[in-house]
Write a protein that binds this DNA or RNA. Structure first.
Lengths: 137, 137
DNA sequence: CTCCAAACCTATAGCTTCTGGAGCATTAGA
DNA sequence: TCTAATGCTCCAGAAGCTATAGGTTTGGAG
């Protein structure tokens, strides 16, 4: 039996976050001690570790909820779990591409040395005038 | 004189967002018509375009507030504006690196074909068991 | 057994950056 | 003059937590 603090230390999920997950229905309400404190079993530790890992990978609470539901049915084909992961991979790649565009633009903007005045600062001018942009964001 | 709708169409910033920016102090409360509707001048259109552009680049409201304050003092040296942009470039690069790590891990996870059952699905197993990860996130 | 600090409880509010709706007022054009 | 489009304020919600206040329980030391 683990207290909520044990669970937190073992998974790296903060205590209020564990309670939040319970409220959101990601983990079931656990047993309570006589004094009304949460007492968890190993099963719940594993489930929380699963959630933690998936969150680290950037999956949404919704996706995780779906994956958890799927994992309750080991006999079903796993195409759906695959689809969720693949879909997420696509959004991760899109984010990377977008950030790289921003990186290029920021590099251009930052090319100023900071040794002149705001009046002719490239940072300020670039932000004020979109037409100076190379890309089409 | 532009109505809030004109401003919205010209900058691509949604109407409630414009009102939100006013509330947050990013743009000044404009003149009002006799019937209490907002009436903007060209100056405010430019300021909003500046904000829009900076938001597109992912700058926080706080950073934008700083840049706007700086742009009010064209005589000052622009090192500060530079610093903000450079700092942002660093965080953008960090985000890219992190997402690329996730990309690699997801690629590994997704290598399954979806033609078997949840019980032995790599997606589910990989999420349940952190030790299967290559990287150290 | 008693005591006390650490850990736990609930409830609520706040963070960030908007977005949307309800219910009513104004404006612009036919 | 009429009416559709647009605008107003206020409030709630989304995501995913985090923090605070004010109180209770637990576990170990003496």
């Amino acid at each position: 039996m683990y207290s909520i603090g044990d669970l937190s230390r073992r998974t790296g999920v903060k205590i209020p976050t564990i309670r939040y997950y319970e409220q959101m229905g990601l983990i079931a309400a656990p047993e309570r001690s006589e004094g009304n404190q949460r007492r968890y079993e190993k099963r719940e530790l594993e489930r929380l570790a699963f959630i933690r890992h998936a969150r680290d990978l950037g999956l949404s609470i919704e996706s995780i909820r779906d994956l958890l539901a799927l994992s309750q049915h080991p006999e079903r084909p796993c195409g759906e779990a695959d689809r969720i992961a693949k879909e997420h991979l696509i959004t991760v790649r899109e984010k990377i591409a977008q950030l790289q565009k921003l990186e290029r633009e920021l590099e251009r903007i930052v090319a100023c040395n900071g040794d002149h005045t705001i009046g002719d600062c490239y940072v300020i001018r670039a932000l004020a005038d979109h037409s100076m942009c190379g890309s089409d964001h």
